[in-house]
C-alpha cells in the first residue's frame, strides 16, 4: 500500500507541471515541414510543439478515431476533411485568430470539401502526374497511355503508386471517367487497365516513399508521382527528369490544417496555423518540401522558370483538367477488393 501511495504522490506531483507548460500536439505527414519553422514558432510564442508523424491519410484517421492521442493540429487531405466535417469531428475555426488566412489564394478560400472555409486552412496542394527520365524515354509524354501502353512505355519501365485511390484514379482518368466514380462497371474497366499493365510486364514496382530516389538513380523510365516528390527528384537529380500532368486530367489535391473537435487548445492551435500561413514561413516550407504553396504572395515571388514547371506549380489550365477526390469511405471495401485482385 505504501508503494502505491508513493507512486500516486509521484504522479500527482508531476501533473501540475505538465498542465502549466503551454504546449500543442501537431500531427503532420512525414517530412512535410522545415523543422526550423517549428523551433521558431516555439521561440516566438513560448508554446511548446509536440510533433507526431503519419504516412497516409488512412493511418492518421485510424489513430484519431481510436483516440490514441490528443492532437491539436492535424493535416488531413481534402476528402478526409470532407469526411470529418460530415461527422462533426472538426472544430470551427475562429478566423479572427488566423488573420494570415487572407494570404491564401482566392480559389482555395472556400474549396468544395469545406464550402464555408471555416473548418480548414490549406497548407500545401499539388497534383498527381508522371515523372519521367528524358534519357530513357524517346517519345513525348503527355498522356496516361505513356504508362499503360506497352508500345509507348516498354517493359519494366513504370513505378506505380502503392496507393489504391491514386492508382485506380489514374486508370479511371485514362478512360475518361471520374476519379470519384461509384459505378461498378467503370471501376471494373479501370481494374482491367491496371491488370493488363501488370500482366504485360510494364510495372517495375508499386512503391511510395522509395520511388523518388529510384527515379534519380535511373531505375525506371517513368513513375506515377505526387508533384512534390517529383519536384524533389528533379531538384536532386542530374537534370534528366521532367514532370507532366497528362492531358486526360488527373487528381489535384489539398492538404489542409484543421483542429479536431476534441482539442482542448483551440486558441493555441489557431496561433500555430496562423504562423504557418505567414508568407515568409510558408516560403521556407515550400522551398523545403517542394509542394505547391497556397499562399498567393509566395507563389508570386517564385521565379518564372520554376512557376512554369508543373512539378512546382500548376497553372489554371492544369487545375481545370484535374479533379478533387471526394470521400468514398463507404465504397472502400470494393476499392480494396479491386486492389487485392490487381496486386495479389
Amino acid at each position: 500500500m505504501k508503494k502505491l501511495a508513493f507512486l500516486l504522490a509521484l504522479i500527482f506531483s508531476l501533473l501540475p507541471a505538465a498542465a502549466l507548460a503551454e504546449y500543442i500536439t501537431v500531427f503532420n505527414w512525414y517530412d512535410y515541414i522545415d523543422e526550423s519553422v517549428i523551433s521558431e514558432f516555439e521561440k516566438e510564442t513560448g508554446i511548446e510543439v509536440k510533433y507526431a508523424n503519419f504516412t497516409t491519410n488512412e493511418e492518421m484517421y485510424a489513430k484519431l478515431s481510436t483516440g490514441a492521442g490528443e492532437y491539436d493540429v492535424i493535416f488531413p487531405s481534402d476528402y478526409i476533411v470532407e469526411r470529418m466535417l460530415a461527422k462533426g469531428e472538426l472544430a470551427e475555426l475562429n478566423l479572427d485568430n488566423i488573420p494570415n488566412r487572407s494570404y491564401v489564394m482566392d480559389w482555395l478560400q472556400a474549396p468544395a470539401y469545406d464550402p464555408t472555409g471555416a473548418h480548414s486552412v490549406p497548407y500545401m496542394w499539388g497534383t498527381v502526374g508522371i515523372l519521367y527520365n528524358t534519357d530513357l524515354v524517346d517519345v513525348e509524354v503527355n498522356s496516361w497511355q505513356n504508362i499503360f501502353d506497352l508500345e509507348l512505355a516498354g517493359e519494366k519501365s513504370v513505378f506505380m503508386l502503392d496507393s489504391i485511390r491514386d492508382s485506380l484514379g489514374v486508370a479511371l482518368c485514362s478512360l475518361g471517367y471520374s476519379l470519384n466514380t461509384r459505378d461498378a462497371e467503370e471501376l471494373e474497366a479501370a481494374k482491367q487497365v491496371l491488370m493488363k499493365q501488370r500482366a504485360e510486364g510494364i510495372v517495375k514496382g508499386y512503391l511510395v516513399d522509395e520511388t523518388k530516389d529510384k527515379m534519380i538513380s535511373g531505375e525506371a523510365a517513368l513513375a506515377v508521382m505526387w508533384s512534390g516528390d517529383a519536384g524533389y527528384a528533379i531538384m536532386e537529380g542530374d537534370g534528366n527528369l521532367a514532370y507532366v500532368v497528362p492531358e486526360e486530367g488527373s487528381n489535384v489535391w489539398i492538404d489542409a490544417m484543421c483542429i479536431p473537435a476534441a482539442s482542448q487548445k483551440q486558441e493555441l492551435a489557431e496561433q500555430f496555423i496562423n504562423f504557418l500561413c505567414r508568407p515568409d514561413v510558408a516560403a521556407r516550407n515550400r522551398e523545403y518540401i517542394y509542394y505547391h504553396t497556397p499562399i498567393q504572395q509566395v507563389a508570386d515571388e517564385m521565379d518564372e522558370e520554376e512557376k512554369q514547371n508543373p512539378a512546382f506549380f500548376a497553372d489554371q489550365a492544369i487545375i481545370d483538367r484535374c479533379e478533387f477526390f471526394h470521400d468514398i469511405a463507404d465504397e472502400m471495401e470494393m476499392y480494396d477488393r479491386i486492389w487485392m485482385e490487381i496486386r495479389g
Binding site: 497516409t56 493511418e59 510495372v203 512503391l207
Partner: peptide
C-alpha cells in the same frame, strides 16, 4: 518492389490502409 504481397503485408494493409 511491392510487386507481390506476403501475408504480413496484407495484415499491415488492413490496419493502416483499409482501416478494417
Amino acid at each position: 518492389s511491392g510487386n507481390f504481397f506476403l501475408f504480413g503485408d496484407i495484415i499491415e494493409r488492413q490496419f493502416l490502409e483499409s482501416n478494417d
